[in-house]
Design a protein around this nucleic acid. Sequence first.
DNA 1: AGCACTATTGCGCATTACGCAGTACCGCGC
DNA 2: GCGCGGTACTGCGTAATGCGCAATAGTGCT
Lengths: 109, 109
Amino acid sequence: MDTSQLLKGVLDLAVLAVLRDEDGYGYDVLRRLRGGGIEEVGDASVYGTLRRLYKAGYLSSYVVPSDEGPHRKYYGLNDLGRARLVETEQAWRAFAETLDGILRKGKAA
Amino acid sequence: MDTSQLLKGVLDLAVLAVLRDEDGYGYDVLRRLRGGGIEEVGDASVYGTLRRLYKAGYLSSYVVPSDEGPHRKYYGLNDLGRARLVETEQAWRAFAETLDGILRKGKAA
DNA sequence: AGCACTATTGCGCATTACGCAGTACCGCGC
DNA sequence: GCGCGGTACTGCGTAATGCGCAATAGTGCT
């Protein structure tokens, strides 16, 4: 049940996806992912991914002070990020289909 | 296009799947995977995965001398391996569906 | 004051796929 | 018979990435 290994290489995609329609800060992205069904994701993984994607130039970032707690570092998709999202999503779908083909092969035997 | 990261945690599943109907040796498993569409997989990854799965108790193994080359180390699924295959496949499908849900969310907006 | 929740950062670790070198065995052409 | 390409496996070191845990810090409740 090591879901963590399935996440590898896909967390980027998931994070980009939940930021597609609205900017979000780390803790919020974490909640969106968990709310979306990826319950097991660790907080450090999300923060790490956000920093990595930002460093890679896919995200813009700005800090907003909050009334109800510490400051929040918001992230949002820029053009590169949107292109990356499309690209990664396609790669994912193609790969999923390939694997599905392998899984089905001979299953009727 | 870093497909290698998508492979993480899924190569186990793919290897178990191609061994489902027939035992195979490393080099052969490699060809089955590539033939199945995972072209980019490295040989060392496959050999490593086979060893890992064997060590974990999912595979049985026997060596067969070959007329046309070096000996071949065959691997086959045992009961634990078959159970693992079912389990991993379910985990994969569930996860793929979850991710799909996240990708679709808000896409109509 | 202490605790829980929100929010972020950093460190070190485990897993795992990969490249590359090395070993070895075969058959073919020269 | 010697090298060469294809078959077949092993081992080593590396890179990517998700995770646990500790630390920091602000807010509000008791």
